[in-house]
Amino acid sequence: MATALPGGADGREPRPSGELLTIGQVLDLLRPDFDSITIPKIRFLEDKGLIKPERTAAGYRKFSTGDVDRLRYVLTMQRDHYLPLRVIGEHLDALDRGLEPPPIEPVVPTVPTVTLSSDGLPSPESFARRDNVRLSRKELIKIAGIDEDLLASLEQFGLVTSRSGTGHFDTDALVIAQTARELADFGLEPRHLRAFRAAADREVGLVEQVVAPLARGRDAAAGARAEDAMSQIAALSVRLHATLVKAGLRRR
């Protein structure tokens, strides 16, 4: 029996099946379950042929309940199973033809969630966090939902590196790869991200310069104080950077 597309199970009152929705209404329906969904993302998924909303005479998109169900399916497969859009498209094609989509292989291992502060920015604790996650190249590609070409480009521009001597990748490499994949949805390629690498290196240098005198302390707690200060300064640096970018965009 073919797997049904998701829909009607989110506790919200279903809309009449014949009612067409604007893109803003679709966004309101999806955001409670997918908080990162945006209008550009919906348009991108349309460009990829995963949904085909109707168009009014004036060119405005109008979405059916079936379109919303397909969007939920795509977003769920990305979030819960890390499937690339090409594979999700194959699933949808199978469902459209009344077939069972290919089986979804379990993704292992799971990785820890980065600690975030209430405003969505990394907290000092996230900078102090250390984990022992080690991902093979194949696991990184699968979990991050990228392909070999994208990973090779990220390595070429120094955005992702494996651990020296092991060839394994850590949680930071996974987060960078996932973020690069999402930025690629908006046309940003790894070569465009070199400025982020350069800016991060400058910030690291500044933090190390401030913390160095603390680390040279003679008492036993000097190292701990330096680590704590480094985490605090790093979190403040990211907050300042993010707020400056936000303020700059608002002025335009």
Score class of each variant (00 low, 15 high):
residue 214 L to Y: 09
residue 92 L to Q: 02
residue 151 L to R: 00
residue 185 D to H: 14
residue 41 K to V: 09
residue 104 I to W: 09
residue 195 A to G: 10
residue 37 I to T: 14
residue 59 G to M: 04
residue 185 D to K: 09
residue 8 G to R: 08
residue 219 D to I: 06
residue 221 A to N: 12
residue 87 V to T: 13
residue 198 A to S: 12
residue 2 A to W: 05
residue 82 Y to Q: 10
residue 7 G to F: 00
residue 84 P to V: 04
residue 185 D to Q: 11
residue 22 T to N: 02
residue 223 G to L: 04
residue 8 G to E: 08
residue 161 T to N: 13
residue 93 D to F: 09
residue 52 K to Y: 08
residue 202 R to H: 14
residue 93 D to T: 14
residue 249 L to N: 09
residue 148 E to C: 03
residue 115 T to E: 15
residue 186 F to Y: 15
residue 85 L to C: 03
residue 248 G to W: 06
residue 36 S to W: 12
residue 13 E to N: 12
residue 76 T to W: 09
residue 27 L to I: 03
residue 125 E to G: 07
residue 235 A to Y: 03
residue 184 A to C: 06
residue 229 A to H: 08
residue 147 D to L: 05
residue 228 D to G: 11
residue 154 L to E: 03
residue 52 K to V: 13
residue 47 D to A: 10
residue 88 I to H: 02
residue 116 L to T: 06
residue 185 D to W: 13
residue 171 T to C: 13
residue 102 P to F: 10
residue 118 S to W: 09
residue 23 I to F: 05
residue 172 D to G: 12
residue 82 Y to I: 02
residue 200 A to V: 05
residue 77 M to Y: 07
residue 133 V to L: 13
residue 27 L to R: 06
residue 128 A to N: 06
residue 4 A to N: 11
residue 39 I to N: 06
residue 221 A to I: 12
residue 24 G to E: 09
residue 232 Q to D: 14
residue 128 A to Y: 06
residue 215 A to F: 08
residue 25 Q to T: 10
residue 242 A to P: 06
residue 11 G to L: 04
residue 111 V to H: 12
residue 160 V to G: 02
residue 15 R to Y: 10
residue 225 R to C: 05
residue 160 V to Q: 03
residue 2 A to C: 09
residue 206 L to E: 11
residue 118 S to G: 05
residue 19 E to T: 13
residue 137 R to Y: 03
residue 93 D to P: 05
residue 116 L to E: 07
residue 46 E to N: 04
residue 230 M to D: 12
residue 197 R to L: 10
residue 159 L to I: 07
residue 207 V to D: 04
residue 146 I to T: 04
residue 134 R to H: 10
residue 240 L to C: 09
residue 92 L to R: 02
residue 205 G to T: 08
residue 91 H to V: 05
residue 14 P to K: 02
residue 74 V to S: 01
residue 40 P to R: 07
residue 212 A to D: 14
residue 189 E to T: 14
residue 13 E to H: 13
residue 149 D to L: 12
residue 23 I to T: 07
residue 139 E to G: 00
residue 20 L to V: 05
residue 36 S to R: 14
residue 77 M to F: 07
residue 61 R to H: 10
residue 239 R to E: 08
residue 214 L to A: 08
residue 226 A to P: 04
residue 1 M to C: 11
residue 55 R to A: 03
residue 216 R to A: 15
residue 89 G to P: 01
residue 172 D to R: 14
residue 217 G to W: 08
residue 66 G to C: 01
residue 224 A to C: 04
residue 45 L to M: 11
residue 69 D to E: 15
residue 191 R to N: 12
residue 96 D to K: 11
residue 132 N to F: 11
residue 237 S to N: 11
residue 42 I to F: 02
residue 141 I to H: 00
residue 51 I to Q: 01
residue 108 V to G: 12
residue 169 F to L: 08
residue 167 G to V: 04
residue 122 P to R: 06
residue 74 V to E: 00
residue 203 E to N: 06
